[in-house]
Amino acid sequence: MELREREKEATHRRELELLRETHRQALELEKAKQQNPANPNNPSPIMIPQHKKFPTYKAGDDTEAFLENFERACLGYSISEDQYTVELRPLLSGPLAEVAAEMPKEKMNDHKLFQTKARYRMGITPEHAGQRFRALKWKPDVSFPRHAYHIAKNYEAWISGTKVNNLDKLHHLIQMEQFLDGVPEEIEKYILDGKPKTVMEAREIGAKWMEVAEKKKPTVKGSEYPRGHHRQ
């Protein structure tokens, strides 16, 4: 009985040692796979590039809608922003293709710069975007999602185009827009050329324009014309 018990214990120990050795070898093999490059005789499966589908642009299309749909496609394909213009360029035609061709080579993949230049080329200036943002009003034939989309896009084009990047600049932008609302274009240009930093500075520039304009008004002396005589 004692002999049989000893033989069982010896067999059990050998089995445990065999299991430990097998486990050790498996760990070493896994470690070697992680440290060494793939075996050329057993290559990894070939990954077939995913075929990407993007919206294409034709002259006359809605520029803002096209750029928005393109960016959404890039996000869906997990494309980094520095590769946006690389993917975008083959999709363009007409004026937007010209904008891409005119980009400086050192900044040809700057997507934000392309957007700014494209908007200017298509007449979507920050000023125009701001005017459209203020003028947008909901109509019964416009869905609320579409109304919200146009509100957000015009606001974004307005703010990003004017390079507003802090709260003080945003305050100044909104106050200046309201201050210049209804001001004739000639006077507005005169005020903006003065580069006012606050609406109070804009007030002084506007007052100066009015003062100069008053001095330039022609004066007519009553003694120059006899009574009953009118200028022809």
Rank of each mutant, 00 (worst) to 15 (best):
H12A: 05
D193G: 06
P184T: 02
D82Y: 04
Q175R: 14
K189V: 09
G123K: 04
I46N: 13
C74L: 02
A10V: 11
E177F: 13
H171C: 11
S143A: 08
N41W: 12
Y77P: 05
P43M: 09
A202I: 05
E21L: 08
Q115E: 13
H172K: 15
P95W: 03
A129S: 07
L192E: 10
R72C: 00
K105I: 13
V212C: 02
I187T: 09
L170I: 01
L27K: 15
P218F: 08
N36K: 14
Q50M: 07
D193W: 03
P126Y: 02
D193C: 10
E214R: 06
L67C: 05
K137W: 01
A73Q: 12
F54Y: 12
R231W: 15
L67V: 11
G76F: 07
V86F: 13
H150D: 09
L18T: 14
M210P: 00
K31G: 06
K53T: 09
K137N: 05
Y57G: 06
T198S: 13
H172L: 15
L173A: 11
G228R: 02
A10G: 01
E21Y: 06
K107S: 14
A10R: 10
R6N: 08
E185W: 01
L180P: 06
R203K: 00
L173Q: 12
L75Y: 12
Q25T: 01
K8Y: 05
K58R: 13
K169F: 10
R89D: 11
Y77V: 02
E204D: 07
L192D: 00
L96V: 00
I46A: 12
D82K: 02
I151E: 05
I124Y: 12
F66V: 08
V183I: 03
P140R: 14
P140M: 15
Q232G: 08
K107G: 00
I151N: 07
Q83I: 00
I46P: 09
D141W: 08
R13H: 14
Q115N: 11
H147V: 11
M122R: 15
K216L: 14
I79D: 03
L136P: 01
R72E: 13
F66Y: 14
V99Q: 08
G194T: 04
H111K: 04
V86D: 12
F66K: 09
Y120W: 14
E156V: 10
P126G: 08
E71P: 13
L113W: 06
K163F: 11
E127S: 07
K139T: 06
Q131E: 15
T198P: 02
E7I: 07
K117V: 13
D110M: 00
Y190D: 07
A101S: 15
G161L: 05
R121A: 00
G228A: 02
R14A: 10
R24T: 07
K221V: 04
Q50F: 01
N39P: 01
K221Y: 15
I174A: 06
T162A: 14
G228V: 06
M176T: 03
M200Y: 11
A118N: 12
A100I: 05
H171G: 03
L173N: 10
Y225I: 07
H230N: 14
P196F: 04
A38L: 13
Q35K: 15
Y190N: 05
E201D: 11
R146K: 09
H229M: 07
E64Y: 10
E21H: 11
L27S: 12
